[in-house]
Nucleic acid binder design. Structure first.
Length: 253
DNA sequence: ATGGCGCATGGAATGCGA
């Protein structure tokens, strides 16, 4: 089973890249973030023509998440239960017996700002909900744009901002792994300075000035089955790319 | 020291992302 996550920064603009990538990579599940479109504008026909079924939770201009899958999705949940949130940042569904949770974690803007406080509250609510969700679904994967670089090696040495690398954010990430989830990327040897996001400005991709902020966390049964985890940098090098690259895991039987 | 690009909205300039 092949699972992937990709912040596409506007599904309308990125649809050709997404369709090309699906055709080439043939994942069983693709989680998308930052759709930036309303549900009525979701490109259902194009996704279905590519052989995938979508479930989605969108909104105008900002946010928006979707799960595309070859097999049907059941028990779909939009938004973190118990956390009132007007921003469409979470969708979960069960596919082939695996609980898939797709999240677009808040950016936080600056440590201590109102948006940062919202980010931390969002993370706390997610963690509390996942704790109960894991009791119901031992096979669970949390995929998405976390907007957190978990360790120093996940940020370029010249990254000067506090946001994405602050102790509070990293503690929140560790609270997720403390639920029994493993960072799939770190189950395997990886090149130094492996990132998943590069700013559009400053020729950041060419200089590899990036952050690793897109992650796939796996519960214990899925961790045991995990065969690989890679960042696919190829789409970032295309014309009019998303600023994020897809992250992909392969699970064995 | 700042902003540097891209997207959306709306039809210019601004908010936001990370």
């Amino acid at each position: 089973m092949k699972l992937a996550t990709w912040n596409v920064n506007s599904l309308k603009v990125r649809l050709p890249h997404v369709l090309d990538w699906l055709a080439r990579e043939q994942p069983d599940v693709l989680c998308l973030q930052e759709l930036k479109l309303e549900d009525k504008s979701f490109p259902t026909a194009e996704i279905e023509a590519a052989g995938y079924r979508p479930v989605f939770s969108g909104q105008k201009t900002y946010n928006g998440v979707a799960i595309l899958s070859r097999q049907p999705a059941s028990d779909v949940v939009c938004g973190t239960p118990g956390f009132a949130d007007e921003q469409k940042r979470l969708i979960a569904a069960t596919i082939d017996g695996v609980r898939i949770v797709c999240g677009y974690f808040p950016n936080g803007q600056a440590v201590g700002s109102d948006k940062f406080i919202y980010k931390m509250a969002w993370l706390q609510a997610l963690t509390a909900w996942l704790k109960t969700e894991l009791t119901q679904h031992p096979k669970l994967a949390l995929l998405g744009d976390y907007n957190i670089a978990p360790e120093d090696r996940d940020a370029h040495p010249d990254w000067k901002e506090e946001i994405h690398v602050s102790p509070a954010e990293r503690e929140a990430f560790q609270a997720l792994t403390a639920l029994g989830l493993s960072d799939a990327f770190r189950l395997f040897p990886q090149a130094d300075k492996s990132f998943s996001w590069w700013d559009y400005r400053m020729m950041a991709f060419r200089r590899n000035f990036g952050l690793r902020i897109d992650h796939i966390l796996l519960s214990a049964p899925l961790t045991a089955a995990c065969k690989s985890c890679v960042v696919d940098k190829a789409p970032r090098a295309l014309e009019r790319p998303s600023d994020h690259a897809p992250v992909v895991v392969e699970l064995g039987a």
